[in-house]
Design a binder for these strands. Sequence first.
RNA 1: AGUCCCUUAGCUCAGUUGGUUAGAGCGCUACACUGAUAAUGUAGAGGUCCGCAGUUCAAAUCUGCGAGGGACUACCA
Length: 1129
Amino acid sequence: MSVKYREHKGLNLPSVAKEVLEKWKLENTFEESVSTRDENKPFVFFEGPPSANGMPGIHHVMGRAIKDIFCRYKTLKGYRVERKAGWDTHGLPVELSVEKELGITKEDIGTKITIEEYNAACKKTVMRYTDVWNKLTEEMGYWVDMSDPYVTYENKYIESVWWLLKEIYNKDLMYKGYTIQPYSPKAGTGLSSHEINQPGCYQDVTDTTVVAQFKAKKNDVLPENTYFLAWTTTPWTLPSNTALCVGPKIEYVLVKTFNQYTGDAVNLVLARPLIGKQLSGKYAVADEELTMEGFSLGDKKIPYTLEKEFIGSDLVGITYEQLLPYTLPHENPEKAFQVISGNFVTTEDGTGIVHIAPTFGQDDAQVAKDFGVPPMLVLDENENPVPLINLQGKFRPEMDEFAGLYVKNEYYNDGEAPDKSVDVLIAIKLKEENKAFKVEKYVHSYPHCWRTDKPILYYPLDSWFIKITENKGRMAELNKTINWKPKSTGEGRFGNWLEGANDWNLSRSRFWGIPIPIWRTEDRTEQICIGSAEELKNECQKAIDAGLMDENPLAGFEVGNMDKANYETFDFHKNYVDAIILVSPSGKPMTREADLIDVWFDSGSMPIAQRHYPFENKELVDEKGFGQADFIAEGVDQTRGWFYTLHAIASMVFDRTAYKNVISNGLVLDKNGVKMSKRIGNAVEPFENLSTYGADATRWYMITNAQPWDNLKFDLDGITEVQRKFFGTLYNTYGFFSLYANVDEFSYSEEEIPLNNRPEIDRWVTSKLNSLIKDVGEAFESYEPTKAGRLIQGFVTDQMSNWYVRLCRRRFWRGDYSEDKIAAYQTLYTCLETVAVLSSPIAPFYSDQLFNDLNKVSKRYSEKSVHLTTFPTIDENAIDIDLEERMSIAQKVCSMVLSLRKKENIKVRQPLQKIMVPVLDQNFARRIEAVKDLILSEVNVKELELLEDTTGVLVKKIKPNFKTIGKKYGKHMKAIIAITNQWSQDNIIAVDKNKGWTGEIEGDSIALETEDFEISTDDIPGWLVATEGNYTVALDETISPALKNEGIAREFVNRIQNLRKESGLEVTDRIELQIKSDDKINLAINDNLNYICSETLANSLDLVEEVKGEKLVFEVEEGVSTELTLSKV
RNA sequence: AGUCCCUUAGCUCAGUUGGUUAGAGCGCUACACUGAUAAUGUAGAGGUCCGCAGUUCAAAUCUGCGAGGGACUACCA
């Protein structure tokens, strides 16, 4: 007894997944799928490290399915695809969750709790959900090596990160500079944007605001004695003003009037739309009564006149006198105090001219930098550039009468604040000096420190930067070599981002992360960047020799020993390295720069850090290309995250891209298109989903429903549909195959029957199959998984199941085990097997079961899993486009005939005599002749007649071919349509005969050829006709007595088959039949006796007067009933 | 505010280099078929291809300006 194909009781995808998963574990399938591939043919994949301190969501299933698909596909193509898992372990979210758990704040770190304890807590927290992640990874069928992941907090990883940073440092691409950051002088700390966005931070406050008058220096555009008006809500920043900013397209006016505080005649510049706002109250347009000449200070009304107009760009470059000249910027003072322009300027409030203090505003700093205007920085006692306000929030000594005052009264201790704030004092001074146009109180919203409840300042804080700007061009150039999916993300979003990229601020004032490995002397004249444990150990030794340290923290570390244990003898985190004091070449002590490295640098370092390069795996990275991924995939939100940092680091350090192909996938939304969130409660729980529908259906749905880069509206009904339509059909097809293959004991042991000896339909489906292999391969190659999935699905449901199997059913269960039958088995087997392999990247579980169900019997493959096989090769000879075309004609014609039957209410079971198809050309005649038998049996008609139009009975239709005519005579298109529409049958026949038409239209001579027309048959008078596109079919609906009887016989067969099934007979059981005799049916039965018997496997059929036993009574046609009974032989 | 994506039937989506009757599946209605039955066929209903303007003989498709939805980044004198 040979092995049988496994027969399943029903399709349960979750349990298939479970079973297959067990098998994979038992057989180490994943490991084998890597190890059996050629070591010299690697496909490099980088896993973006998730943060394990949060639970995974359904969108992770999406992202990981995409990664998995291409890794599996490339494995099928013979590549060795190593996939190392990784964990992102540092960063603010971890710290915040720890602070919350411990009930502490950032300030308590180092006081209430040591940094060491704090970091230990972070380390513990961060890997909290690894088990859950591992479980998801396994259940969704994502193959990635979780046994040896890279972890960003491990010393080896950090050492590689330091090495990278030092490379950048050595290329002189790092500097310490400042950015304007929210700063709380009372707390003495910078605030992250995250902290500023906490509720309650923005509070309404009343501030003294000033519209200041900046006196223009002599220029060609403006008259003398002209002032620019600029409004500020922070007068304390006015001494730090170094520029004024106008909107380049905004209209400005020159106004002649008087200052309300001094009475001086002045010319003012402001934006036209804001005249009404600024020149309000006392101000009024001058007229006959209110003259410019008659004004004196104290008058109720102040006259003004409009003198001139400009647009912003006219004003750019004009210089002005410094408003409050206490000091000058230490750098490029000659470039200060000029008008510049920026697109952020609006005319919603103020004057349309913005006061720029680059030391106290983010926009200000940026626009000033763009125009080369220096910030108001002065040199302090140590020759270091500092702003006019110190870290306590007080004015520096340069500010004369203001020196030592807090810029905001809120910073004084209770009861110590002076009556007049700095803002008020400055306002008074400006009024007296004819420099204030207007002083007002103003209520607005201003951010406050959430710890001290005092207003914050935007303040320049020192940070370490990487000079991205210097490298921008090269980064953009390299970006062009990356294959982005979709293209627009790479060219648009990413490309633009690169173009506008600023220097990368590396510094983070946190605790849990990789420390910046730079040590500096106190006077900032000497510094060192550490690039390895070895270097640090040596530097420590020097410091010990110089007497700065007592013992070497890396004493236990053995240089060159890459053992894990050796790398655990020390710790690179802040709590350890901050204690290290190094010695400078001149013998001065150097302390570590306090900040940590931005966590994005951690993950961007992973291409080499995951392999501890260059300390280990040097050959792998340098020679085998493991430092550069062939493929990565993450969410589109990583464009400026991981995608960027990978690219930046790789281009700076190695002058190459970090990845060659990248898919940025969209979001997973709920079925209404709303972002999933736990708060709204519309998040889909991934585990529940996987256990309900199975990973295969979920993955297939996600991939085929929308392109990965479009957002996915996640709808459970969609998964059900996939389950039923795709997997259900595939399962049914296998079920059909196995049922009969087991009966016939087909095990693919016969010689492969040459394609030429197989019937048309076999060659057709084989051709389709090979086209499918080709198209699916191309889709995977170009990173289009959606296309691949849809192609496979289309083949399975439309071609293989609904056409091939439907038309071939009887070949499987009728007759002997002949060559035709074997051909059918071989053909269907090959289709199923190939589909299993093609779909395995997307549906890894079911495809593996299908593959094994087939292979266990045939033993065609020695591999135990579909994932260990290779992608099918295309048999180009099997692809026959003409054949595919022929079959598509057959499908079309069948559908038309069935539609005609439907219209006339003639059952398909009732045979008809004839259909006629007009042939338009010989090619068509040949094609339809080839598929004639298929059509006839499918639509149950006896003959097909090709109708050559010799008689002229066919009514023809002519349609111009717009595509070809358009190219030649586009202009006359409308006229040509008008003419052809009017053509009679004779005209059309003439065009056909003459192979074209020539004539004159609108004065031009026109020559049209055969290809410029489509002639089709419209109607055959006197027949039942269906027309679709170019095809026309006529059906002879006459039912002769013989046909009628045959119909009745078929009716019997149908009933008997149903009865067989109901009686629980095996498909191979033989039967005996008794039918109640009736004049109306006897002839029908006797005429078709052989047919009925052979169809129903009946040994005998008796017409009897009385049917005994359990009998079926049914109506053959209206008014004619009979009884039948069947018994197993 | 900038950048990018999306908008086609009730729903989910196709729609090639512009070509004149815009398609599929699901859902709905009706009728069939069935030795694959958690299938299948046929027919019907269902469209301002988001809007406006432009280019063109011809626009769902190309260009511009808008609208709505989404994402990212940044800021407000």
